[in-house]
Design a protein around this nucleic acid. Structure first.
Lengths: 174, 174
DNA sequence: AGCATCGGTTCGTTGACTGAACCAACGGGC
DNA sequence: GCCCGTTGGTTCAGTCAACGAACCGATGCT
């Protein structure tokens, strides 16, 4: 999406948000970062995204402050991309849009279920725990496959790793 | 965004939702529909969108069941585009992403403020009324310009009409 | 030395977005 | 009847981003 050109004249926070996260692939990158994907090759494997596009999106998100690039080993040099607080605040958007997709575009039920790790109850669409009545921190959310999940669609290592119950933001082991 | 090509293999409700509403302009069309924009020329004036793209997006949204096309007069034939229940359920997503943009991308504060018409208190990011403690129906939400709004940016009739306090979904008079 | 991995960049092709022009149906004024 | 304006589109040529494949430098392994 070449957005900025017109969106900048919209006098609207939604338009400004979409300039940044409304481009093709960008919100899926954020989704994966919430799931615990951190490394270039893992985003690549899980998203089937052209390398040039992934590089560009990561750079844009780092520049905007949604992700940080962190060198976690120096030989060989390896970087990981981590969500900032600003990035973690996109989780409610990602969750709510997923739930909308679950309700209206998924015949067989949700592909993934997000629940409050402390009490096990499924999050409501707004991202709160119906049991505890409060919003749940991303680190306290557990994800697992739902009935609409189709394991035959993807067999990359990241998809396989994400099929067992998993805390959000916890690094995926590939 | 040419999305479906790769997104369809994502086994993810978010990806399916983005196939539909993740294309350039689409979520802004939904936003305007929430604001009460109904007619082709009003979308055109408010969005500065190429006509071909607007036609294509409206058709896609109608086909998907987010909007309905309703002939409200027959001579001359005039149609209006109205949100379905499925479309109105996108409001929490639109609102939450707007609030995220307010917090992180708008220097001067929110461009628009959404409040519960019954009690006047501003909605929380999740779209609930902090006073009443419950989610607010879209028809009970009132919008008005916020401190970050810049009236010099747009002077089309729709923008002008939307600058006075206004119930959501209520048709804009142009 | 030779091969593999990681995190990119480069490049030619394809396809979507853009803006301008055009068009059909209709109403209103004269 | 005739001309003009409005509405809701479609068509078309040019541009720009996405795609996929190839390539590359740094490093580790054997």
């Amino acid at each position: 999406m070449p957005l900025a050109k017109n969106y900048e004249k919209q006098d609207c926070s939604l338009a400004r948000a979409l300039e940044l996260v409304g481009e093709r692939w960008t919100l899926l990158v954020v989704r994966d970062a919430c799931y615990g994907v951190r490394r270039y090759r893992d985003f690549l494997a899980h998203l089937d995204i052209p390398r040039a596009v992934l590089s560009e999106r990561l750079r844009t998100l780092v520049d905007a402050g949604v992700l940080t690039k962190h060198r976690y080993q120096s030989s060989p040099p390896r970087d990981e991309y981590l969500l900032t607080e600003m990035g973690r605040e996109l989780w409610p958007v990602v969750h709510q849009l997923s739930r909308w997709g679950d309700r209206h575009l998924s015949g067989a039920g949700p592909c993934r279920i997000f629940s409050h790790a402390d009490c096990g109850s499924r999050l409501d669409p707004g991202g709160s725990c119906p049991e505890c009545g409060r919003p749940v921190e991303l680190t306290d959310v557990e994800m697992r496959p739902g009935p609409g999940s189709d394991a035959t669609l993807r067999d990359d290592p990241v998809s396989v790793a994400l099929r067992r119950p998993h805390r959000m933001l916890e690094p995926v082991e590939t």
